[in-house]
Nucleic acid binder design. Structure first.
Lengths: 258, 258
DNA sequence: ATTAATTCCGTACTTTTTACGGAATTAATT
DNA sequence: AATTAATTCCGTAAAAAGTACGGAATTAAT
């Protein structure tokens, strides 16, 4: 987040936060072959923002990212990956906050030399979750908070569209080297399901036979004896993640290049 | 940089800088099969730091990184790559700055609630240069500024050793996808020279025949008719970078995996 | 029994990666 | 002029990884 959506309240409590630096989380949600991103709309602006917040003086940037993600999703233990930081003087323009505007809205008088009118460096993280798990909750000073398809974003504040694109690039690089899916698929899932997951995230189609071959080679999933009856066609076998191999893959990496 | 080496002067001029966020540059230098890193030692501390500085309100973080690198190396147009940001409350401990200490040294009285005593988020970049090109200049309040072998670092402030290790990891990933060497080798160079460059940066030996094969496949270097007589053995042919292919590689990437 | 939708086994081919053998060149020395 | 030591670098063979498809098997509705 670049500009405090809740600037006036922020000024009251500002002592607990670092100045001129904040965290932005690009929260991706996957559900039934769709990739979405959770965005908020502040009252003060007709544009949308990624999920941001300030950093407490007593917490690390990773802890801040985690807390901020929890506040909007209700989820703990999200895997948050830092992918870049963004900062330039243009970020401060068109923010919807000027001393006059704040006085109009809240009655507070903030001197125009206050650091809240200087630009904020955004330290940015992304995460990926099953979006039906999320209880999206908006902040007090936000008009709305909702999921948007990554391919059809609304008008975004500042460079937030750029930040989302960078997050998606980083995610796509990431899944070539580390396993994903544990938080996104049911405990038992079919090959077509995990196949669609990879296709959706990568934004391209993958040969089903070669996909299966490479996936099974990593040993991170194992085949069960059960099948799932889902229509007038062959019933797909169920698979599940091999927790041990999966954890090892998260640590040491697993090549899974498509 | 996490803690202002020149805190008192900083307080005077602080209005031009962002608060609680700063840039650190890990400046790698290559010369004759050695990889070094440029470090500074503040007077106030017996530990060493990577090359850091503050961000002006009027400049982007990339511009800040560039300016800070220029101030210590005299080099413009360095390729500075952002590889991560670091921030946690531990960064503020053992920094060598307390209100008492500053008063002792400078006579200034700074309230202990000032933001300069809160932690700084470090937005970190690395760069790589031929180190004989660098005119290392120390800042006014630094005791010393010099090159250290990456494998034999002195005691470092905070997490700066960690930052250097992360920079080196990022550099090693980077050179698998983008060409390097243009700023590090003479205009005309031999295969063994560029071979050593890659071995040094990657910290492992590479089969010379396979190295050559892959390198030539990318077409970023081209063979000249000249050789260089350098001893009682076969004279190696000279090569030079194909500027066009090299530039294209910088933009679009060139796989060069060892 | 037929049909449509889907799953998934298997194979052939191409490209990339890895591992080495050994010949060629240079200049000092014998 | 032959020998020697140091180094450069050409080339090949085998293994591994990646790519492209054909077509058979299964399910349930008709």
């Amino acid at each position: 987040m670049t500009i405090p959506a809740d600037a006036t309240r922020f000024v009251e409590y500002s002592d607990q936060f670092l100045k001129n630096v904040a965290v932005d989380n690009v929260i991706f949600g996957y559900h039934e072959k769709e990739l979405k991103v959770l965005l908020q709309q502040p009252y003060t602006l007709d544009k949308w923002t990624v999920t941001g917040g300030y950093i407490k003086k007593t917490e690390s940037i990773e802890q801040a990212a985690s807390r901020i993600a929890f506040d909007r999703t209700g989820l703990k233990d999200l895997y948050l990956k830092q992918f870049g930081s963004f900062g330039n003087p243009q970020r401060v323009i068109d923010k919807g906050f000027t001393p006059q505007r704040i006085k109009e809205i809240t009655g507070f008088e903030i001197p125009s030399t206050s650091w809240i009118f200087d630009y904020f460096v955004s330290v940015s993280f992304y995460t990926l979750t099953e979006f039906s798990k999320v209880e999206s909750t908006k902040g007090e000073l936000e008009a709305d908070s909702k999921w948007w398809p990554v391919s059809e974003l609304p008008p975004m504040m500042f460079d937030h569209e750029h930040i989302i694109n960078e997050a998606l690039s980083a995610l796509r690089v990431h899944i070539a080297h580390f396993p994903i899916g544990y938080e996104l698929l049911p405990e038992k899932f079919t090959l077509p399901e995990i196949h669609s997951l990879y296709e959706t995230i990568l934004g391209k189609s993958l040969d089903d036979r070669n996909f299966t071959k490479k996936l099974l080679l990593t040993k991170i999933v194992s085949k069960l004896d059960e099948t799932r009856k889902i229509g007038r066609h062959r019933s797909p076998f169920l698979y599940q993640f091999d927790k041990e191999k999966y954890e090892e893959g998260l640590k040491s990496g697993v090549a899974l290049v498509f």
